[in-house]
Amino acid sequence: MRTSTHVAGVLTGLALALGGTALTAPAAHADVTACINQVERELRGGEAPSYVRTACFTGQSGDHEGCVTTLTKGGGVTNGTAVTACKVAP
């Protein structure tokens, strides 16, 4: 294999690997944002309190029940909204 071909192949692989990482990171954040937005629609009171953010990050980590419990016990989010919000978090 020629050196120029080899270098081009390595650079292409590196670009694809780094590009895939960059595209994956915002998606995870978007899921937490979707969770928070779901709760904010019900609360209709501006920015979500800190317990909502904590619950949505808990849901993103895979603890669906913990997410729902934190939302419903934290400040009056209905069970239906909590379940829906926590489903979009992971």
Rank of each mutant, 00 (worst) to 15 (best):
H6E: 13
G20Y: 13
T33Q: 13
T69D: 11
A89L: 11
K73E: 15
A27V: 15
P26N: 01
H6C: 11
V10T: 07
P49F: 09
T69K: 13
A34R: 05
R44F: 08
A15T: 15
A22L: 15
G75M: 04
Q38F: 05
K73L: 13
F57I: 10
A25C: 06
G20V: 04
G59L: 00
V83C: 01
L18S: 11
V88R: 11
L43I: 09
T84R: 15
L14C: 10
R44D: 12
L16K: 07
V39I: 14
G76M: 07
A27N: 11
Q60I: 00
R53C: 09
A34D: 06
Y51F: 15
Q38E: 14
A22I: 14
T69S: 12
A8I: 08
T78I: 00
T72I: 14
L71Y: 05
K87D: 11
D31S: 14
A30I: 10
V77R: 04
T69E: 13
Y51G: 03
N79H: 06
L11D: 01
V83S: 02
V7A: 13
T33D: 12
A25S: 04
G20Q: 09
K87L: 09
N37C: 02
V39A: 10
T21A: 15
A82Q: 06
E40W: 00
T21P: 01
T3F: 14
G75L: 07
T69H: 08
T81D: 07
G75K: 11
A55I: 12
D63G: 00
T81K: 02
G62L: 03
A27H: 15
G9N: 03
A34W: 04
G75I: 08
G76A: 01
